[in-house]
Design a binder for these strands. Structure first.
Ligand SMILES: [Zn+2]
Ligand SMILES: [Zn+2]
Ligand SMILES: [Zn+2]
Ligand SMILES: [Zn+2]
Lengths: 132, 132
DNA sequence: TTAAAATTTGTTATAATATAACACTATGTA
DNA sequence: TACATAGTGTTATATTATAACAAATTTTAA
C-alpha cells in the first residue's frame, strides 16, 4: 500500500490537504481538518509535515509557520526555496526563477562557509491587493 | 531619559543583551536574563523585540525564532536581510554584500508583485565546524 | 520464511513561543 | 495645561511544537 507513491497513509492525507489548498496551512488548521480521518493529535501532524518537508513535497514558510506544497519539481529536495508573500492578503507564491536560483546557489559567504541550502522570503503587496 | 538614544528603558536593556551576545537569543532566554532588571513577563520582552525589529536594531532569524543585533547600519530598517547559519554549531552571521543586496532588491516577481522587503537565510557548515 | 531493523502510527502529557486585554505611567507636542 | 502617543506592568490565555512510550506496519536481507 505504501509503495505505490512512497507516502505513508498520514503523509498522503496531509499532503493532499496542503496540495489542494490555495493558501499556506498551519499545523493546527491541518489537525482540525483531518480529525475526521483519524489523525487526532499534534505529533501525527508534525511527523508527517517533517517528512514531507524533508522529501521536498512541501515547504515551510518560516515567517508564517505555515506549509505549502512545492510547485517546482520538489526544489532539489528543498535545497533552494524562494517565496513571494503579500503583506496585505497573506498570499504566498513559490518563485521559480532559474537565474535567481543559480545566482544564490553560487553565492558563497566570504568567511569560508559553503552553503548547502537557502530559503528566501520576499514581502510586498500583490497585484490583486494593489488594485483594491 | 528616553531622548538620549531613542530607546526606552526596556528596549535598551534588551538591545544591550542581544547586542553583546555572540549568538542569537530566544525570547524566553532573554526573559530569564532580564528578570533581575525588573522585566518579568513575556509581553514586556515581545514588545521590546517588536520595536527593535521595526527600527532595524535587531533582526529575527525566522528559522530559529531567535534574535540578533544588526551588524550592518540597521539594514535600511530591516528591508534587506541575509544570514548564514551553521547547521552544526548554530552560529549565525549577518551577511553584508552589496552585490547580493542590490541583486535581490532589484528582483521583481513576474506576476506583478513589487517587493518591499526580503529575508534570506543560507544554511551550511561553517569553517570552524568543517575542521572538527 | 522468517527474524531483525527501520519506519510509521497512536496516545498522553508537556514544553516553547507568542498574544489579548486591561489599568496605568511617562513622554512629546501644542 | 491638556491632549495624544508611546511605553510599562500584570494576569491570563492562545498558538506552535516536542518528549516519551507502546504498538503496528513495512522493508531488508539472512
Ligand atoms: Zn519547491
Ligand atoms: Zn495581496
Ligand atoms: Zn542588519
Ligand atoms: Zn559551525
Amino acid at each position: 500500500m505504501y509503495k505505490e507513491n512512497n507516502l505513508s497513509k498520514n503523509q498522503q492525507i496531509i499532503f493532499d490537504l496542503i496540495n489542494k489548498s490555495s493558501e499556506p496551512l498551519k499545523a493546527y488548521t491541518i489537525l482540525f481538518s483531518v480529525q475526521k480521518k483519524g489523525i487526532k493529535a499534534p505529533p501525527q501532524v508534525y511527523r508527517a509535515l517533517d517528512k514531507l518537508v524533508e522529501t521536498g513535497k512541501i515547504h515551510k514558510i518560516e515567517s508564517k509557520n505555515a506549509f505549502v506544497a512545492c510547485r517546482n519539481s520538489n526544489c532539489e529536495i528543498s535545497k533552494a526555496t524562494a517565496f513571494s508573500i503579500c503583506e496585505s492578503c497573506e498570499m504566498v507564491d513559490e518563485i521559480s526563477d532559474t537565474k535567481l536560483s543559480k545566482y544564490l546557489s553560487g553565492f558563497n559567504h566570504k568567511k569560508g562557509m559553503k552553503f548547502k541550502r537557502f530559503n528566501l522570503e520576499f514581502f510586498g503587496i500583490c497585484k490583486k491587493c494593489k488594485k483594491d
